[in-house]
């Protein structure tokens, strides 16, 4: 178990392992997005995130003009367990190297 093994990406979950203790972006079902610091995860993509910002996007249709009104509702949660079955994608923080 050298440092090489710790840092190489052989399977998809390795990418998430390298994001531990980093801020990640999570896209969830039902038009929800999360940004938060990854503290724990498992093979189901159950996660514990810290300092989470949740954005819920809702689309309403105006009764008269039939225009779509897109609303983003934001809230912050200090610590959040996220059940993995709602996860669509996990994106690690942007790396400059």
């Amino acid at each position: 178990m050298g440092s090489e093994e710790e840092s190489t990406v052989k399977e998809p979950l390795d990418l998430i392992r390298l994001s531990l203790d980093e801020r990640i972006y999570v896209k969830l079902r039902s038009d929800r997005e999360l940004r938060g610091k990854l503290h724990a995860y498992d093979q189901h993509l159950n996660m514990i995130l810290g300092d989470v910002e949740e954005i819920v996007t809702t689309v309403e249709i105006d009764d008269e003009t039939y225009e779509e009104i897109v609303r983003a509702t934001r809230r912050t949660i200090p610590f959040l367990f996220v059940r993995g079955d709602g996860v669509i994608l996990v994106s690690p923080p942007l790396r400059t190297t």
Partner: peptide, 9 residues
């Protein structure tokens, strides 16, 4: 049926 669990800080 759980989506989130908010945990005490």
């Amino acid at each position: 049926v759980v989506r989130y669990v908010q945990l005490p800080p």
